[in-house]
Design a protein around this nucleic acid. Structure first.
Lengths: 225, 225
DNA sequence: CCTCCAATTCACTAACCGGTTCGTTAGTTG
DNA sequence: CAACTAACGAACCGGTTAGTGAATTGGAGG
């Protein structure tokens, strides 16, 4: 055959497709994450995911086995990312008040930086967490944030700075609430109250406000007991 | 055909259907609320709504004009219910601290009592509040809770009990956050942390905790400024 | 160069689902 | 009671959508 290899650079030509299972799988996961986050589980279209990939719908079924399993895989990866960030948090060198502020800020920043993750969690709750329940990987995934928080609370109570006897999981829920709400309910809140909770100008104020509130609660003088 | 009309009482026989536009409309709205809350907008089935009604799918289109408009009507009614509850809140006779606790408790109780409403709000956020934006009725619906909160904050700052200068809308978001989160993220939280945030045993503790936290924040001694 | 299998393409379908067509009936009004 | 209309029901439709069967090919190993 006279025709030599096409003179284009291989990277620029999408037709030159070297077989790469890992890359195909990863690309499907990326696009699927966007599509599920965009439209919800039922609203997401497998055809649409395939179209925005350099591969075909058949590959989605080849690698993931179906829409439901694909969504579970998307959740698994999304959760592993946030757990990773929590794992890297190091507050051992900080005093309890500074440590709790640091934890609040990390949670706050991570939520704001990952709106797709927030949407996926909302969607999974609409489906009553059935995919998490069905995923061993997700169920055995602990939460480093809870452990860190527990250590901070113990230290604070030990030194007497923290006056309140709060449950670790409750406090974690409390902190997550505001971080989650700002992002998750951004659109209805904007439509109803005319304020974009995630606008740049709000960021610093909200971050500080949540920290102040948590610290105020933990260090409040015990009133009538 | 000898068989006479069935001898059952008319009330017990669903086939004896007197025409009642208002009732048919209301019944469709009730069932649609459940179905949309159950499965999300895309997951909800118009056929399913019709089947669980004493009327047919045709009537849904006759009264509401389509799936999208039906969902908007569902949202309109759901929001008007909570606004009504807020309107009835009267804290004029309470001191600022008691008043803010009362407001927190009303918000808390209403969220817990209306999980379907919470789900609808989550769903509407996935769709970026496009139905609220398209509904004049919803856009002109203010929020009595904000007004009440503003009056409480003004009174508290006036008397010097509240030491912090917080924005009304921010504080409203803060209070709503935890109330919303408990219900909205109940399932993923349970699946991941093994605790049902809406279990009966948690209720009083959470209610008190949120009140304590808000009060602690508002009345905190101003530290280094 | 041949073999072989994972990776991929192509062609297809059955079921679903929002929306509509068209005819019917209950109840009101003159 | 005749005429009229709002309310209603059954059947249908066509585009969409998740999911498959089977043939094909790239590339690693011998």
């Amino acid at each position: 055959m006279a025709a030599a290899v096409p003179p284009q650079s291989p990277a620029a030509d999408p037709r030159v497709r070297t077989r790469d299972a890992a890359r195909t799988r990863a690309e499907i996961l990326d696009v699927a994450t966007q599509e599920f986050a965009r439209a919800g589980y039922a609203g997401a279209r497998v055809d649409e995911i395939a179209a925005r990939t350099r591969t075909t719908k058949r590959m989605i079924y080849y690698y993931f086995g179906g829409k439901e399993k694909l969504f579970t895989a998307v959740l698994e990866r999304a959760y592993s990312v946030i757990r990773q960030a929590e794992q890297e948090l190091d507050v051992a060198h900080l005093d309890p008040v500074a440590a709790i502020r640091r934890l609040v800020e990390l949670t706050f920043d991570h939520h704001e930086a990952h709106p797709d993750f927030i949407r996926l969690v909302s969607i999974e709750n609409i489906h009553e967490a059935e995919h998490i329940a069905a995923s061993e990987e997700l169920r055995k995934l602990g939460s480093p944030a809870i452990d860190v928080l527990r250590r901070i609370l113990d230290a604070g109570r030990g030194s007497g700075v923290f006056t309140v006897d709060v449950d670790v999981v409750d406090l974690h829920a409390m902190i997550s609430s505001f971080c989650f709400f700002r992002v998750a309910n951004r659109h209805t809140f904007q439509a109803l109250f005319g304020r974009d909770l995630v606008a740049p100008g709000q960021r610093e104020r909200h971050r500080a406000m949540l920290g102040d509130m948590v610290v105020a609660y933990l260090t409040a003088e015990r009133a009538a007991d």
